[in-house]
Amino acid sequence: MKHIATFLVLFVIYGLLTNFVIDELLIGALVSLVLTIFIAKYTNYSIDYKLPIRLAVFLFAYLPVFFGQLVLANLDVAKRVLSPKIPLNPGFIKVKTDLKGDFAKLTLANSITLTPGTLSVDIDGDYLYIHTIDVKENDPAKFRQQFTQLFEKILGVVFND
């Protein structure tokens, strides 16, 4: 199951990158096969029967929120860059996350980087370290609600059991 899915993903990416000629597709199948064996051996992930649900949540709940936040972030950047004196109030903060698994944490960190005023710097265990351009209230209890809760809810459905 895991091998077949990995092989299909690699083969489709290969197909997108080349023209649909029979020789190239054969070489692509061979390359994908070798890569599948290596990837499945050296990395740790699993694919289960809930995949369609996860995919649907990812496409129809995560992506719209993500693009909305990206546009908001850019308006925020535009506002700051175009104002004569740039309003800044920076700080590094620490937020705990409930997500398990490297890929889930990576997606959360990437999403946080692209939301208004935040930039994820590092992940250490269950803690995310974030640089924020505007520390509104200096209260560790509220950081989580302020910065990560929106994405954590959705990604929790996508990645956790």
Binding site: L70, A73, V77, A78, I86, I133
Partner: peptide, 17 residues
């Protein structure tokens, strides 16, 4: 932007979109 971290923020967000 006045310091490196703010530059990273502005640069990444704007160029991605």
């Amino acid at each position: 932007m006045p310091d490196t971290f703010d530059r990273i923020q502005a640069g990444t967000k704007a160029t991605t979109l």
